[in-house]
Amino acid sequence: MELRTASAVIGFAESLETGAAKFYEAAAAGFADLAGCFRDFAKENGKNVQAIKRAYYSVISDALETGFSFQNLTSEPYALQTVFPESAGAAEILKIAIVNETRIQSFYRQAAECSETLMADLPRVFKRIANNREKRMSRLQERLDATGGSR
């Protein structure tokens, strides 16, 4: 799906964060060792949605290019895996999480780049969330390394 308008981008970002949060909540229920980390992430996903919406609703204006700021942005490259097989082990879960996080991060970076000169605060929030994901991905990678799953 093509994402051209600010509202479409905001809606898609929300679906990514919500999808990722559901994945982490489900995984937390099945893996006690990872539960703390995953629940933190799920909570942070909710905060990200709030931050994006706050930025959008604060700066949106009839004068800004809300309908035309996102050229060549589509949803397909950023599809997440939000369910996992019952037989999946911790390493597999962590690998899925890293792929998901990488996709979400690249979505935010692409959306920020598209709208950088047009939409004021919104690309700034996108960039901040993308940068924060570095920490998250490092944490996931450390846990994956600890399981021996990255070998």
């Binding site: 609703y57 604060s58 700066v59 949106i60």
Partner: peptide, 25 residues
């Protein structure tokens, strides 16, 4: 906010982003 914006789109026809912009203004 959103309820006000949606009312504008329904009666005027403008896009929901435009209505939210109008509401903010």
């Amino acid at each position: 906010f959103d309820e006000l914006a949606e009312a504008q789109t329904r009666e005027h026809g403008k896009t929901i982003d435009e209505s939210r912009g109008e509401t903010r203004r």
